[in-house]
Design a binder for these strands. Structure first.
Lengths: 358, 358
DNA sequence: AGCGCAGATGTTAGCGGTAACAGATTACAC
DNA sequence: GTGTAATCTGTTACCGCTAACATCTGCGCT
């Protein structure tokens, strides 16, 4: 292989394999001219270089066990030398695939909310590895264009009949469900149990739970985690639900703490957003964190760290969960949409200033 | 068109166009059976239905002016009836395109940073419209796989020679540059000028600027915006640069405010992150915002709103800027990589509790 | 009539890959 | 030696679409 003055590469290629194993050689050498760097190597190029058919190269990529190790090595060498990269558009065309996965977000989403950012990131990273594109769709746009599968989040009871059940594509849900769908979620009950045990271990006896007023499985699980833990310790616990906003939590916390007249209190929150509102209320009332009031959040994505004092929180491995969604879905697609079971991640309690000072 | 008991659709299709304009008719009617909903309509299907060749349908899509209005309408009707959606993989294959755009982030990115989340969102939304996929790459991975073009952000002086100049694909930079590249940015100088003018109009006379210690055009512009405005009003202004972290800002603010011994002070920050640190310092010193100290941030993406008190900030239309990046790049690709000029967005001053109380 | 011409439409080939089949070679049993 | 299955490899056709070329039509001109 050498360059001429015109910066053109000359490749030596054989039209047949050279003498191997004593079989008759069918090698007829000829020269081929190729522009440098302008075009990417194709399967054909590799085939020529390795002196095999396109099909053999294709097989080396997709079913390597069907090819003799001898030719396989030849092909690998050729691919390496030509820096071969498969063309995914062509493969998609043959398989009648779109290489598009849709992420359908059914709840109202704040795109700036880091929780979703991380989920998205996890999904996108994983899809990318397999050369799938991610398309963000909503309640209104979900039927525009074709796709190979969907990840759906934020579904409410009504959505099953109207949107999810009629889908004729593989689906993975982000968020637990009692229906016959594969899903990925965190162990919500256990997460809140950990947070509640934590504040109990700090000797708080007045314990409140601030929940989100949604009749969804994940909230039910979190409430259950709280009530069962409190009961188990023979303590008094109060559950208050509100919309997931720091302002709502601030107002509610102010009210509840006033009623408790300064008695040491722990507030276990169902989200970091709520916890931030509680922190504000506490500081505004001139109480001390964590001496007078201990606060725990849930999610552990960004908000816990920008809070001051920093929040003790139940961290969900959101990025990893996103990746798992993608993996499961691609797997499902390969398996023609068969059920493959769900995956529940274990949350981690992160202890910080809002409950504990060294 | 009607269904039979097997839920199969029968379409009536003509093998030739019916008598038009008095030309001899070549219509031979026959029946065709088609499964419902299983396969998507292709260009061929549309061609058959409209009784024209595939090429005519293709032309209606890509060069409608080359087709007589008569046939065009026929084709449109057929496409509509069959709910035709073009197959982008096939088109990409013909045009030797990958339909992939890479977003190359050269600075260290905190994946949780909402700023990037929004940028990404804007880019992804726009690319999606044109059926392009977004691939996130870094300094290490930028050369993996092929793409049709790149959006690059966070570049430093060294990067041009090593990474950017050698690229043989169309590029749009996110962030201003003095080199011969197309870019998208916000008017940094004007943004800081607005913030500075604002605190001056509130009668602050001690004014500090907290910058980020990076020798990049955007920082230079922000510093310039500050110094020129302060000078213009014949005031004293001090510029302090540090790394972009709330903790650094908190430490620096504590030091500076102690030196000023409680004199009313305004601190103009080069990012919301810095501003949040300043707010913490002020509260911890027992000073009042905005009475004793006024604080302004920059970016206006999420952080300004989770701060308490909420930050006055210079908002960049980050999502829109992301969209513009994508639009410019796709345009450039169509134009075979020609220069197309840059786009500078105007920032907006959002006044909130950190400088002004009604 | 015969010519060139322009515009509308059809035909062909091929983008890069793979499934399905066909052909070649070997191994082994009888 | 022959039949037969197992294993490997090549050939063909096609996925959906479009560029380039070929064909056809009617028109105006000499």
């Amino acid at each position: 292989m050498f360059k001429d003055a015109m910066n053109t590469l000359y490749y030596l290629v054989g039209e047949g394999r050279n003498d191997v194993n004593g079989y008759k050689s069918r090698a007829i050498i000829r020269w081929e001219v190729r522009e440098e760097g302008v075009t990417m190597a194709t399967l054909s190029d590799v085939a020529k270089k390795a002196a095999v058919s396109k099909m053999t190269v294709s097989r080396v990529i997709n079913h390597p066990d069907q090819v003799s190790s001898e030719l396989r090595e030849l092909v690998y060498a050729a691919m390496k030398e030509l820096k071969y990269v498969p063309n995914f558009a062509a493969r998609a065309l043959v398989h009648n695939r779109t290489q598009v996965i849709k992420l359908l977000i059914l709840e109202e989403m704040d795109t700036t909310e880091p929780y979703y950012m991380n989920l998205l990131n996890g999904i996108a990273m994983e899809l990318d590895k397999h050369h799938y594109a991610l398309q963000l769709v909503t309640r209104n746009s979900h039927s525009i264009g074709d796709c190979d599968g969907l990840i759906i989040t934020g579904m409410r009871a009504d959505d099953y009949r109207q949107i999810i059940d009629p889908m004729d594509r593989p689906i993975v849900l982000f968020g637990q469900t009692d229906r016959a769908y594969d899903f990925v979620d965190v162990d919500n009950e256990r997460g809140i149990r950990m947070a509640t045990e934590h504040v109990i271990s700090l000797h708080f006896t007045n314990i409140l739970f601030f929940g989100i007023s949604l009749d969804e499985p994940f909230m039910m699980a979190r409430i259950r985690g709280f009530t069962e833990t409190v009961l188990h310790h023979g303590l008094y616990g109060k559950v208050i639900c509100m919309k997931n906003s720091s302002r709502a939590a601030q107002i509610e916390a102010t009210k509840q703490l006033a009623m408790l007249q300064g008695a040491a209190t722990a507030i276990v929150c169902a989200s970091d957003r709520l916890a931030i509102g509680v922190v504000r209320a506490v500081l505004e009332m001139g109480l001390a964190i964590p001496r007078d009031v201990a606060v725990t959040g849930f999610d552990g994505v960004f908000l816990d760290r920008v809070s001051y004092p920093k929040l003790t929180t139940v961290r969900q491995p959101v990025i990893e969960m996103g990746q798992e969604c993608a993996k499961m879905l691609l797997n499902k697609i390969d398996l023609d949409g068969a059920r493959i079971g769900s995956r529940i991640f274990q949350p981690v309690l992160i202890v910080r200033e809002s409950t504990w000072r060294p």
